[in-house]
């Protein structure tokens, strides 16, 4: 293949997706970005003026607090999910075809139910008089109901449940794809199961784990329905506030500015984490080789 073809080939491969993203995402977003620099009054967006008012408004400690809470909750959920999903993926990956497919369906099943309906399911389960609290009371473990809803606990439970598959699926794909001969060879060379896991399985599945965690994290950052339904107004996350600002206040400039900050902040975090993991992976690989 000549050098010229090599130069344009990647762009050719990127073209279909980029084109779709332009129409389905980028161009509409540009309108929003523009909105974020306009003034606002109850009469609507004032397109004749350009201002940074929406962004300066976000410098308020209140908004910083909401961003901080969103970030904290998202990280907690991603961390717990990663720890829970790894053993599950290990187990699922070594099952036979049929069992594997059925278990994956189990983990996918939360997505078969509309998020609003699911929230009602959670209410029956987590509510002050829900199944869990009833069990706890019957066992005599508590007198007063344990608050599992309308607080951060509820949001975390709901989102671990809802976004679990995003870590599990890539991880499963990677673990199931590892050539069993590799582990067999390592075993033949005298490595113990734990060592095989640490030096072969883990390094080979790390990129997929990372990919899954990043997807999971971004989903958590942008989640709207679950925090709104299980946390209520008490657990204000960025998306919830963006919803209110856009729909109740109809303040589209502020809503757009909020989204831009969320977008940029999350992207920066993701890129940073990738750098850190990339260097970490080199270290793991290096040790593994030794």
């Amino acid at each position: 293949m000549n050098a010229g073809a090599r130069r344009w080939l990647p762009f050719l491969l990127l073209l279909p997706l980029t084109a779709v993203l332009c129409v389905g995402f980028l161009l509409p977003l540009i309108q929003s970005v523009e909105n974020s620099f306009h003034g606002f009054s109850p009469r609507g967006i004032d397109r004749s003026t350009w201002t940074l008012a929406a962004y300066t408004k976000l410098f308020d400690p209140f908004y910083a607090g909401v961003f901080g809470r969103t970030l904290r909750i998202s990280l907690i959920i991603s961390a717990i999910t990663a720890v829970l999903a790894y053993p599950v993926a290990l187990y699922v990956a070594q099952l036979r075809g049929r069992a594997q497919a059925f278990l994956l369906l189990v983990y996918m099943s939360p997505w078969l139910i509309n998020v609003v309906v699911k929230a009602f399911g959670w209410t029956l389960l987590l509510g002050p008089r829900g199944t869990i609290n009833t069990i706890l009371r019957t066992l005599g473990l508590t007198d007063a109901p344990v608050p599992l809803m309308f607080n951060e606990t509820g949001v975390i439970i709901g989102l671990i449940h809802g976004h679990f598959i995003f870590v599990l699926l890539p991880l499963w794909a990677a673990l199931a794809g590892i050539d069993p001969n590799l582990r067999w060879a390592a075993g033949n060379l005298g490595a113990r199961p734990w060592e095989i896991f640490r030096r072969v399985t883990l390094p080979l599945s790390l990129p997929a784990l990372m990919a899954g965690v990043i997807i999971n994290f971004t989903m958590n950052m942008a989640a709207f329905a679950t925090p709104a339904l299980l946390g209520g107004t008490r657990v204000q996350v960025v998306s919830f506030l963006a919803y209110e600002v856009n729909l109740v206040d109809l303040n589209w400039p502020l809503g757009a500015a909020m989204s831009m900050v969320l977008l940029v902040a999350t992207l920066v975090l993701v890129v940073l984490s990738q750098r850190i993991v990339a260097s970490g992976r080199r270290r793991v690989m290096f040790e593994g080789a030794r």
């Binding site: 107004t233 008490r234 109740v248 206040d249 109809l250 303040n251």
Partner: peptide, 19 residues
Amino acid sequence: LAKRAEWNDRFNREIATVR
């Protein structure tokens, strides 16, 4: 109408998160 956004903002800041 004039105060709607302001009241909503105030509610979110001062009231919503109170336990």
